[in-house]
Design a protein around this nucleic acid. Structure first.
Lengths: 346, 346
DNA sequence: GTGCAGAATGAACACGTTTTCATTTGCCGT
DNA sequence: ACGGCAAATGAAAACGTGTTCATTCTGCAC
């Protein structure tokens, strides 16, 4: 109540124990929900602890528990809207479960520095989620011993789950892209589009490759000829330039399917402000992700949504399940996609 | 070289020591640059350590060193472009200095949960940077004992630095907003603007309040009457709605100064797509921050830039200086602002 | 009252590292 | 050859917590 004692020294379990006239072990038990301690005693200790501004030291705790309550997140670019939205939702969800987000950045060329992984391991994260496309679970598993990495997989065919090889252990999140892409192609075709272009993401990106090949498959099934593939890297500027190339050098298109929303923005701006073409009248555009900016009036983008909340819940489930049963075999979760119809296809 | 030994057990300093025929203390010294150890011995140990895939455990290290090598970052919304850009740059810079970013999210209503701070303290961050406007250094300092928080200050008058009160210790980053705002007002006035509006950010936001009052000061100096202030919260949607209100209920304006870039986007889209007004011919718009999206062709926004690299370097300097001299009095750094002229004022 | 099971308790140890501190080694000038 | 000083070394003691295990306490049935 009165805060007259302002100890320079950080309060420890010993100090709290002394103040509450109990043993240090009792303090430990008071903070551990499953420990056996008399309720009134626990309450008294917690009250004294609060007065002394005490919370258990995570470092010391993790040393003996072998649980750091840290989740490592590896990202090439925090600014990318899709990734920042995922980091945001993930951090919120993890915080609710008592975990903290430990953020690491890879180099801009997407190359994964082995030094980074080694350094990262020092913090002993309980789990690892890598958004970098070219860091494969085997690499992660080799460097990180305690944590089981989560692999984000985009099945190409109809089969949802890739089975584990003999190799190192990892858990898996399957993102099923067929539904959304099928719907998008049907819609564009329905409005008369015939000459499709695929605006790819980064060349090494598994997400981009999977989306491209799924697009091709779906189009073939509907009797459409293969799309023109133009290079990209998920950024606005590259998409802008590639779209100009598409129309000035490679014969153009009447429908553009972009590997992500930001790329779609670049394409739309190139079409409207530089090529003086109308969207959706002259060229239809579909994006991927459904980031928050997709509904901004300047774009009002029709796009394939990966439900963020659903995806994050699946990730958190994976993390918690893995922590419960440390030994278990490979775990997996699945999320779906769905087209959100707005103004860039009509 | 050959990786035939794949130890399930995590390698410790003891194991490395045994393998290299040295004492465990020697291993510790090998990893500590300033320790006194014979160079050839250090090399041999580091080589063995690498073969055994060993790195020091940060938890154990921080327990005795009282340095966690973690920097706590508190953010209300990771998705907001300005904040995500700052997180990105900060993480990169910190990583270069051997620190990791520990990310925490406040509730969406910007209210700072004291429980969050208490929980956060358990991780013993070496420093704290709060982007939440309503978490004041005193609150931070009371809850966190070991770390000295960094306060981001926006001087209103000409004096750059606020002097320390008797209160709790904190370090300070001063963002000088006058130059950029002065230039922006001059530019808009030069192109004939007379009826200004200020599109504010979140009501409690110090940045928003400071920008508004600086705008008013500068306008008064140039003989302009006070701007109409319309409510906002830094988001696109609110800015969009508020701009509609401004023109439909409050007489409109011929120049809008927004507290941030995203708000300016909302205003521009409302003007163009709903009110059918031209930017910059009918209404001039200036933003604040210069986020990456500001140069997108759909907006091509004239805005006041806070140089991100400069700002992040200043933050890192503060952190490192504080860690060098733990005891020192309040530290401070200063960054400036500057107008970036693009297409929304003419 | 007696016995007994289950809960509650505290002493000692373990976790993996850095840091004293006292000791040994190496090197240089005379 | 010797003294002396700096550098290098390893034993032991921290750092703050959770867990094991043997012991004590509690409540209940007989």
């Amino acid at each position: 109540m009165t805060e007259r004692t302002t100890p320079k020294q950080r309060a420890t379990a010993d100090i709290v124990a002394r103040a509450a006239n109990v043993s240090r072990v009792a303090v430990s038990r008071a903070f551990n929900p499953h420990a056996s301690i008399k309720p009134e005693k626990r309450d008294r200790i917690l009250k004294v602890a609060q007065e002394l501004n005490y919370t258990p030291d995570m470092a010391a705790r993790s040393l003996v528990t072998r649980r750091s309550h840290l989740v490592g997140v590896i990202v090439p670019d925090v600014c990318s809207p899709w990734e920042s939205q995922e980091i945001d939702a993930l951090t919120t969800a993890l915080q609710g479960e008592g975990f903290a987000t430990l953020l690491f950045k890879t180099r801009t060329d997407l190359s994964m520095d082995e030094r980074l992984l080694t350094y990262m391991r020092g913090f002993n994260p309980d789990s690892i989620i890598a958004f970098t496309e070219n860091v494969r679970p085997p690499t992660l598993a080799r460097v990180l011993d305690r944590a089981v990495p989560i692999y984000i997989h985009y099945p190409n065919g109809d089969g949802p789950v890739v089975h584990d090889p003999q190799g190192p252990l990892f858990d898996q999140l399957n993102v099923m892209q067929r539904d959304g892409i099928e719907h998008a192609v049907a819609l564009m075709q329905g409005y008369g589009a015939r000459r499709f272009a695929y605006l790819a993401g980064a060349a090494k990106s598994l997400a981009s490759v999977a989306r491209g090949s799924m697009l091709k498959t779906v189009m073939a099934e509907r009797g459409l000829s293969s799309p023109t593939v133009i290079a990209g890297d998920f950024t606005y500027d590259t998409a802008y330039a590639s779209t100009l190339d598409l129309f000035r050098l490679h014969g153009g298109a009447d429908a553009i399917f972009s590997a992500n929303d930001v790329g779609a923005f670049g394409a739309i701006d190139a079409l409207r402000h530089e090529l003086k073409l109308r969207v959706p009248e002259d060229v239809k555009v579909v994006g991927f992700d459904d980031i928050a900016q997709a509904h901004w009036k300047a774009y009002n983008l029709t796009t394939v949504r990966i439900d963020l909340q659903e995806r994050v819940r699946a990730l958190v489930r994976l993390i918690l399940r893995r922590l419960k049963s440390q030994g278990a075999a490979s775990l997996s979760e699945t999320v779906r996609t769905k087209l959100v119809v707005r103004g860039t296809v009509r």
